[in-house]
Amino acid sequence: MAEETQIGPSIRAQLAKASPVIGRFEAMILLGFVTGRSRENLIAHDEDEISEEEIMRFDLLVAMRSAGTPIPYLTGSQEFYGRHFHVTDAVLIPRPDTEVLIEQALLVAAPKARIIDLGTGSGCIAATLALELPGSTVTATDASSDALEIAKGNAEALHAPITFAEGFWWDAVAADAVYDLIVSNPPYIRPDDEHLRNLECEPIGALTDGIDGLECLRTIAAGAMAHLAPGGWILLEHGYDQGDDVRQMLEDAGFAAVRTRKDYGGNDRVTMGRRAD
């Protein structure tokens, strides 16, 4: 009978064990998280031994990652626009494509703008705008109390001044509330979209409306004009194949200068419109 191969407690041995399972890059992220070491430290000191407790924690995380749990849910953190946001499975994981919405918002936002982020999730959009546009007033809403707790924690950790409100879309704010900038990354994936199968760890209600992927966008667009100051802008993130539909929504709602911006992959991602003066 062949002898069972023994895996040593060194960093090098642990990475060699995990890399065939989840890849070396992700193995280094998880081992760095467990040990509190940077990637550079892991490489430079790969002969160092780690504790049995760290090995057990690392093995558990590798198994969870192999089963499909996203890295940010394992480490509790995801970078967005140069800042780190705490995430759990109560909120979507912030994605680079949403930074396109931030970039466009910064281009059109008036000084000391009144801003609302509808469906804030982790709070990454609201906190980023609050910090990038000092002097602005930012309100963030979500229908999920669990999501709002995550967003509030991120705002506190980043010292981002934000007012929070719970509720579905426009129901979360007063009927006479007015803003200079409306932004949202609502659920927009169709319930029959094959991509949902790869997102099963994330909250389904933040991914799809369960109808056609456009219902939340319709609700936001339909109510936006009543809450937008003259000269103000609305920016909506949406799916790669929804640009035409969202442009039509905004035009039907009376918005001018309607246009769509592409993400870093060249897909339609953010559609925006302006309320005439």
Rank of each mutant, 00 (worst) to 15 (best):
G213H: 04
L207G: 09
D252T: 13
T260H: 01
D209K: 14
R259H: 12
D176H: 07
A257M: 07
L250G: 09
L235T: 05
A175Q: 14
V178L: 08
A177M: 00
D241H: 06
E166V: 01
N198G: 15
E166I: 09
G265L: 09
E200T: 15
V246F: 03
Q242P: 14
R247C: 14
R247G: 00
D263E: 05
A206D: 01
L217Q: 10
K262R: 11
W170S: 09
A257N: 14
G254H: 05
A226G: 05
V246C: 02
N185T: 11
M225D: 05
I204W: 01
F168Q: 10
Y264F: 11
A229I: 05
F168V: 12
G254S: 05
R190G: 14
C201L: 00
M225N: 01
L250V: 11
A226T: 07
A226L: 11
A226H: 07
D209V: 15
I182Q: 02
D212C: 15
A174D: 12
D245E: 12
V183L: 07
G243P: 13
H159A: 13
L196S: 10
R218V: 12
H238F: 10
I162F: 00
E194K: 15
D180K: 01
A165I: 01
A221N: 09
I182D: 03
F164D: 03
I211F: 08
L250D: 02
R190M: 11
G254T: 08
I234N: 04
A222Y: 02
P230W: 01
V178H: 04
A221G: 14
Q242C: 12
E215G: 06
H227N: 04
N198W: 13
R197S: 15
C201Y: 14
G265R: 09
P186H: 00
G239F: 02
D244R: 15
E200P: 03
L236N: 11
P161A: 06
T260F: 00
I204T: 06
E251C: 07
V173S: 03
I220M: 02
A177C: 00
C201N: 09
I220Y: 02
Q248V: 13
P191C: 08
L235K: 04
P187N: 00
Y188A: 05
Y188T: 09
G231Y: 00
G213E: 06
F164A: 08
M249C: 03
A222H: 12
A206G: 06
L235V: 09
I204K: 13
L228S: 01
R261C: 07
E237S: 12
